[in-house]
């Protein structure tokens, strides 16, 4: 539940924990670093643009790693770029999050076997929190991934490490097939 969902009307008092407020503030202004590596970047730019309008979630790209909370690795990470990605990651202030977007940065994608110049998964060099599959993923998938990051931030509090939160997030996973089935049934019924 987000704080705004509680619908604060006149003269009401809201009681919450500091953790909740802090997490709400952090997840409502996720600033990704503005950089793209390949075709996934085009899709990321489309997500930022007016049709999908990421700014409604408070997400908009920053020009410097020092002002960013989130790194969206959008595209093929070449060996030449890998070292730069590490450096950019290290320049980001903590707490920082990494979203790996698309097959290439997840695992090397089509370059898995014969791409001598491609890093086979960005998780070989930096810790990844959320993987978004697709080649490239549609803006909807990227938004889905970003919401996973928000969910992760929401879970964090004193006494729960990032690893534990990620584990919890994994346990919460639902089968998309069932959702699709349910949506189809609903569509037929209406």
């Amino acid at each position: 539940m987000g704080l705004l969902d509680a619908k604060i009307s006149k003269h009401n008092v809201l009681v919450t924990s500091v953790d909740n407020v802090m997490n709400w503030a952090r997840l409502s202004s996720l600033w990704p670093m503005g950089f793209g590596l390949a075709c996934c970047a085009i899709e990321m730019m489309a997500t930022n643009a007016s049709n999908y309008d990421l700014e409604r979630f408070g997400i908009f790209p920053r020009a410097s790693p020092r002002q960013s909370d989130l790194m969206i690795v959008a595209g093929t990470v070449t060996m030449k770029m890998a070292e730069r990605v590490i450096r950019l990651y290290e320049q980001m202030p903590e707490p920082r999050y990494v979203l790996s977007m698309g097959s290439c940065s997840n695992c090397g994608g089509p370059y898995w076997k014969h791409g001598y110049h491609v890093l086979k998964g960005v998780d070989r060099i930096i810790p990844v929190d959320v993987y978004v599959p697709g080649c490239p993923p549609r803006p909807e998938s990227l938004i889905g991934g970003l919401m996973k990051v928000q969910e992760l931030i929401r879970m964090e509090q004193i006494g729960i490490s990032r690893a534990e939160a990620l584990k919890k997030l994994e346990e919460k996973s639902i089968d998309p097939g069932q959702l699709i089935q349910a949506a189809r049934k609903g569509a037929i019924a209406s």
């Binding site: 060996m79 890998a82 070292e83 090397g108 898995w112 076997k113 001598y116 110049h117 086979k120 060099i125």
Partner: peptide, 28 residues
Amino acid sequence: LCPEDWEGYPLRKDYQVQETYHGIKVPE
């Protein structure tokens, strides 16, 4: 295209990719 300290010439028929590049594993 390749980094300046890359080993070998990638499009030769007998090219073998190097195991690591600056400590990062290269092959699958």
